[in-house]
Design a protein around this nucleic acid. Structure first.
Length: 795
DNA sequence: CACTATGTAAACACAG
DNA sequence: GCTGTGTTTACATAGT
């Protein structure tokens, strides 16, 4: 390449001076105090947020930061009043919630565990109501010193204990028809216990609290009750299952009896799943309406969902079936046996409690059959254990399988989804494990199949399911958006239409093969958490789920996948609200930000603002990504710093940007061929039109860009492998060419293609200004076309 | 396996 | 001295 020494642009003089100065300094040897070869860098192998987890101080507490985005979403879902869609307030709300969420996670489980432990002491007696009161009193004494969350937690514990006690009485037959006095006397304390440890009557509480507050409080407490009681069931079933196993080993008859119950087991599992779905659906509804507001220390089950879930008679019968009393033939008496009784009654109580007649509803639902076959419990246990032991694809998403739902599933592999960065990633556990062996030991010891682990697993299940619900919701939104934006109706699944040809090719191909649900990739590795994206947009698949895996994933999307313009146009709100990393490189984002500006130039601070405005992800760890932005601005020649009156602004050198990506589609003919074949588009023009429409969506935000559409259309026929020709076309399209002929541009482009210092020094005056300022729009659209429809490059 | 692109971290210089 | 901006280097990682 020949080197042309042209007038050095004034705007570059400063930059050149700086570089020359630095180079001069370097030529003179490293300045004193310069970094060592390892240069005080962070430990190796720590990138992309993972560094921050261990070394980065600005990233916050050591709380599993890699899971922080997920936790944030989960926390927002668990506390739906903290809506994800509240743009701009997401972080202020969610981030403080993360710690409380984690704490809640532990508290909830510990509470359940503690209750499980404490209940057996009362299993044989009804007289512990006073102890409940005492406990409540002692807790109440500490109210002035504990936080509201703790207070609420204590209240819940009291309520649970009181409920258990009461229900235990029922189960043990003490609450006979003739013992209405006992019932009444218990019912009121129960209500009081649920309301307040100070034993304030419901009437008093109603005076103190507004009806919505009362309702919310009751809902919260009852939701937690349900959650905990369900844990009791699981605990009980687990134990019973173990007993069954023991019996099976001892008696072949036991095994035969179990085998006879296969069909009922399946039906039972389906019922449970149905119940959960009902709960989640209701949660989603409430979430949409912004009605649910759980305190951080609360469980994740709104009482509405509890009502909805429990009201169906079959579900109540289900619980009855599940939570039978221990039969006399049980060889071992575990506390869970009694818990089952309590749980079943308590659940019934909760169901009745959910009725408007709070605390006045007769507890008629609590009369449960006391002879549930242990086989049902075994079924329940198996259902539960299916989440923890085997890869129950029917029940769990790949993501949940890859996260915490299958702690023992991955033990044979070198990596474990619950292990990373030397610490256990079990929810609520941050135990440090030096190696996999230690971690496995820790996992087996600390997270064995017990009530606590089961409870945690269940919480995680709910988290996953909430995420799935959220995904469905967002998919619906995307569908509506795309429909509104006049996506081609011929598309079978508009919302699932990939936003780029590359991904669409692969998706369509996969869809036609073995992934009808639109999974971008089969979950090849459980270590890579991938949520099944039944209707998920490509953005979610590529960014929110693959993103956390590492930064490199984004390169795919950036390089030959999603055009940033259309992607952002279609998922703008998503990125604004969801804490997911956009599937674009910093360079792409910076360029887009600059080109989105009215005058194609932005100051660094404006770029920062654009990032934070457009992406919720970039509202945290500002030091990290801002550094990356600056790094990219300085590193890539496509970003040109221009001295302005009031400072410096950054512009985009489109030619350089194009040149920056030589591999692109051109370098991957196979990919392009797959794209073409996979798309099966008979008419490229139609594709171009559609793509143009997509690209125009965001770009048309700037009125001045509209008139460049024609230019971009013309450029569709430009060979993209020749950057200079592209620029020629752009300029010849009447854009504000500063009087340079296409040949001149070609020369200049050749000059820029010389990545040498000489080239830098001889950077042409007109290039950056003309290209980036006047032709950026056309080039932008053309590039988007190129990204989406690179087929002509092959010709 | 080498190369490339990218992300991250860090050090440093400089200006305000 | 602090902060923001800009540059550069080093390293890790994933893709090619």
């Amino acid at each position: 390449m020949e080197k042309h020494c042209i007038v050095v642009p004034v705007c570059l003089q400063l930059r050149l001076r700086q570089r020359q100065r630095l180079r001069q300094r370097q030529s003179q040897g490293p300045p004193p105090g310069v970094r060592s070869p390892q240069g005080g860098r962070g430990p190796p192998g720590m990138t992309w947020g993972r560094c921050g987890q261990q070394t980065e101080s600005s990233a916050g507490p050591p709380l599993a930061e890699d899971t922080e985005p997920l936790l944030a979403i989960c926390a927002a879902m668990l506390a739906p009043h903290m809506s994800l869609s509240s743009a701009g307030q997401y972080y202020p709300i969610v981030c403080p919630l993360l710690s409380t969420y984690r704490r809640c996670h532990v508290m909830m489980v510990e509470s359940a565990t503690e209750n499980i432990r404490t209940t057996p002491s009362n299993q044989n007696g009804v007289s512990s109501l006073s102890s409940q009161s005492d406990s409540g009193g002692s807790n109440g004494d500490a109210n002035g010193e504990i936080s509201p969350v703790d207070l609420l937690h204590l209240q819940q514990q009291q309520a649970l204990q009181a409920a258990r006690q009461f229900l235990l009485q029922q189960a043990t037959g003490l609450s006979s028809p003739g013992s209405n006095e006992v019932k009444q006397s218990l019912q009121v304390p129960l209500s009081m216990a649920m309301m307040t440890p100070q034993m304030i009557t419901p009437q008093q509480m109603q005076q103190i609290l507004s009806p919505p507050q009362l309702q919310a409080l009751l809902q919260q407490q009852q939701a937690l009750m349900l959650q905990q009681l369900q844990e009791y069931y699981k605990k009980q079933q687990e134990q019973l299952h173990l007993q069954l196993l023991t019996q099976q080993q001892q008696q072949q008859a036991g095994k035969q009896a179990k085998e006879q119950l296969g069909s009922k087991q399946l039906a039972f599992q389906q019922q449970l799943i149905q119940m959960q779905q009902l709960q989640q659906q209701h949660i989603l509804n409430l979430q949409r309406q912004g009605l649910v507001g759980l305190q951080p220390g609360q469980g994740a089950v709104p009482i509405q969902s509890l009502q909805q879930a429990m009201c169906p008679p079959e579900l109540q019968q289900l619980w009855k079936d599940v939570a039978g009393v221990p039969s006399a033939e049980e060889p071992v008496k575990h506390e869970g046996l009694d818990l089952s009784t309590n749980s079943s009654n308590s659940t019934s109580y909760s169901a009745s409690k959910a009725s408007p007649q709070i605390s006045h509803h007769p507890l008629t639902n609590g009369q449960n059959p006391l002879h549930t076959p242990k086989r049902d419990r075994a079924r329940l246990f198996e259902w539960i254990s299916s989440f923890t032991k085997e890869s129950s694809d029917e029940h769990l998403t790949p993501y949940s399988k890859g996260s915490s739902a299958h702690p023992q599933h991955e033990e044979h592999s070198g990596t474990h989804p619950l292990y990373g960065h030397g610490e256990c990633k079990w929810p609520g556990c941050e135990a440090l494990c030096e190696d996999m062996g230690q971690f496995l030991k820790h996992l087996n010891n600390e997270h064995a199949l017990d009530d606590r682990s089961t409870a945690q697993c269940r919480v995680q299940m709910q988290v996953v399911q909430q995420l799935e619900i959220q995904l469905a919701k967002e998919s619906e939104r995307l569908q509506a958006m795309m429909t509104h934006l006049h996506m081609r109706p011929s598309e079978p699944k508009p919302f699932n239409q990939p936003l780029n040809l590359a991904s669409s090719a692969s998706l369509l191909k996969r869809d036609s093969e073995a992934y009808p649900e639109g999974l971008p990739h089969p979950p090849t590795s459980a270590a890579a958490p991938i949520t099944p994206l039944r209707q998920g947009p490509s953005v979610i698949s590529s960014s929110s789920l693959h993103g956390p895996v590492g930064p490199i994933r984004r390169r795919n999307s950036d390089k030959y996948c999603t055009p940033i313009a259309s992607e952002l146009a279609q998922n703008c709100e998503f990125y604004k609200n969801a804490d997911v990393r956009p599937p674009f490189t910093y360079a792409s984002l910076i360029r887009h930000a600059i080109l989105e500006a009215p005058d194609r130039q932005l100051t660094l601070n404006e770029i920062y603002n654009w990032f934070t405005r457009m992406f919720a992800y970039f509202r945290r760890n500002t030091a990290t990504w801002k550094n990356a932005v600056r790094h990219n601005l300085s590193l890539h020649k496509c970003f040109v710093r221009v001295e302005n009156v009031k400072g410096a602004v950054w512009t985009v050198d489109e030619v350089e940007y194009q040149k920056r990506r030589p591999p692109k589609m051109t370098g991957s003919p196979t990919l392009v061929k797959n794209m073409i074949s996979g798309l099966g588009f008979g008419s490229l023009n139609a594709s171009y039109q559609a793509a143009l429409a997509e690209s125009s969506l965001s770009l048309l935000n700037s009125p001045s860009l509209v008139n460049s559409t024609g230019g971009s259309l013309n450029m569709l026929h430009v060979g993209h492998d020749d950057v200079s020709s592209t620029v020629e076309q752009v300029n010849s399209n009447g854009s504000c060419s500063p009087g340079l002929s296409p040949q001149q541009y070609g020369h200049q482009i050749h000059v820029k293609e010389e990545p040498t210092e000489m080239e830098e020094d001889c950077r042409p005056v007109s290039l950056m200004a003309s290209v980036s300022h006047n032709l950026s729009m056309a080039a932008d659209m053309e590039r988007d076309m190129e990204e989406e429809l690179p087929t002509e490059e092959l010709e």
